[in-house]
Amino acid sequence: MQTDRQTPEGTSTVADAPPDNWVDRHAPPDWRPWLRLSRADRPIGTWLLLLPCWWGIGLAMMADGPEWRDLWIAVACGAGAVLMRGAGCTWNDITDRDIDDKVARTRLRPIPSGQVTVRGALAWLVAQSLAGLALLLTLGGAAIALGVGSLALVAIYPFAKRFTWWPQVFLGLAFNWGVLLAWAAHMGNLAPAPVLAYLAGIAWTVFYDTIYAHQDADDDALIGVKSTARLFGTDTPRWLAGFGAASVLLLALAVMAAAPQGLGLTLGLLGVVGFAAHLAWQLWRLKMTDSATCLRLFRSNRDAGLLVALFLALAGLV
């Protein structure tokens, strides 16, 4: 696939990509626009899509015991997160192409900067989606049904900021679906534990994506795009404290639903305590008018989610 315009290397790098990201340093030049379109230069989104999947596996192991198949589920979820996050971001950039060129942080993305055509982006979207489907087909009937069902959420999300002040909720609905899918891949059904964890993940997403959205609040106000960052305004810390508390409580209930007693319960709850401490640290460090701080705190949620995933895995193995 060819791009329709090559920009100089210094200007083609997207504004919020880490300066040492592997795409800009090591990927072949012809592939960089496509990898940037999939946000491969910004892996935090892949982590935030993957971690709820690993929560689902950990909760299923706590409830039913570990199986060798769980290793494949974890690997498939990892590869699937890369592919489907890439597909989702490609779809997002296609739908936002007339908005991204008006926002400082996004105007150098591949489509608004002219590095990739809309037609080429659609082909890239289809290629990633088909690869993701191939992985999904290995995870069993219940997981396949859930995976197909998630497509509606992915399709709707990019439009949410045009009709609601709560687009972060729509992001949470899509990004945390993996906890249901991974549980179903192990168990073949659904139960209260993954549903509670799903709700916890939605509250967590509102928490971290509101922090992220504060980077664009001024530009969003100029072009009329809605977000919880604009809705909450100076009351953001109070709102985030509420969503953080809701996420912690729901996650604790999910752990107790999966393992009502024993060492597994203790380990799972320790992970929730670590998660709570991390969210509290983020609130303490938050400076809503400092874009660099907002981006750094947003990215730190990988570590918050990993704490939970690690302790749930340990709880499932004991």
Rank of each mutant, 00 (worst) to 15 (best):
G78F: 11
A160E: 01
L307H: 13
V272F: 09
R69D: 14
G80W: 02
W165V: 07
W177I: 05
T117P: 07
T164S: 15
T205C: 10
G316W: 09
E67N: 09
D218C: 12
L231S: 07
A246G: 02
G188N: 12
L125Q: 00
R25Y: 06
L251F: 14
D20C: 09
I211N: 03
T13P: 14
V75W: 12
T95G: 13
P237R: 04
Q282N: 15
A152E: 08
Q115M: 14
L269Y: 06
A217R: 13
G271S: 08
P8I: 02
T95R: 15
F298A: 01
L283H: 09
A277F: 15
V318C: 15
L263K: 12
D41G: 11
Y198V: 05
M187C: 15
L312K: 04
V318Y: 13
G305E: 03
G201T: 02
A79L: 15
T90S: 11
A87C: 09
V225Y: 05
L250W: 06
T3A: 07
S300P: 00
F243P: 00
A142I: 07
A309K: 08
D93I: 01
D100A: 00
H26L: 11
R119A: 15
W91V: 02
G201M: 01
L267E: 03
D235A: 14
P33Y: 08
T95Y: 14
H26S: 04
D41Y: 09
V103G: 03
W68G: 15
V248D: 02
D70E: 13
R105A: 00
G201Q: 01
T117C: 10
L51M: 12
L59S: 03
L279E: 03
L181P: 14
F207K: 00
V225D: 01
A257W: 02
V308T: 14
F207M: 00
P66H: 05
W239R: 06
G56E: 02
T234Y: 13
A155H: 08
G78Y: 11
L108F: 13
G88L: 02
Q261M: 15
A81S: 13
D209H: 09
A15W: 06
L35H: 01
G80P: 11
F159P: 03
P167K: 10
A258M: 06
D64N: 14
L151M: 11
V273N: 08
L136P: 02
L269E: 06
L249W: 14
G147M: 02
D96A: 09
G58M: 05
R39W: 01
A252T: 07
P194E: 05
L283E: 05
L108K: 15
P194D: 04
A315R: 10
G172H: 07
A254F: 05
R162G: 10
Q168H: 13
V23L: 07
V23A: 04
I44R: 07
P192T: 07
L133D: 08
L190W: 10
Y157G: 00
A121M: 03
T106K: 03
Y157L: 01
L279A: 02
S247P: 05
A134E: 12
L231E: 08
S150Y: 02
L199S: 02
Q282K: 14
K226A: 12
T236V: 05
G244D: 01
T228P: 09
T106A: 01
A131N: 07
G262W: 12
G58H: 00
A309Y: 04
V154N: 01
H214A: 03
R230L: 14
T90I: 08
F163C: 12
S113H: 10
R107G: 01
G178V: 00
L295D: 00
M187H: 15
A142P: 11
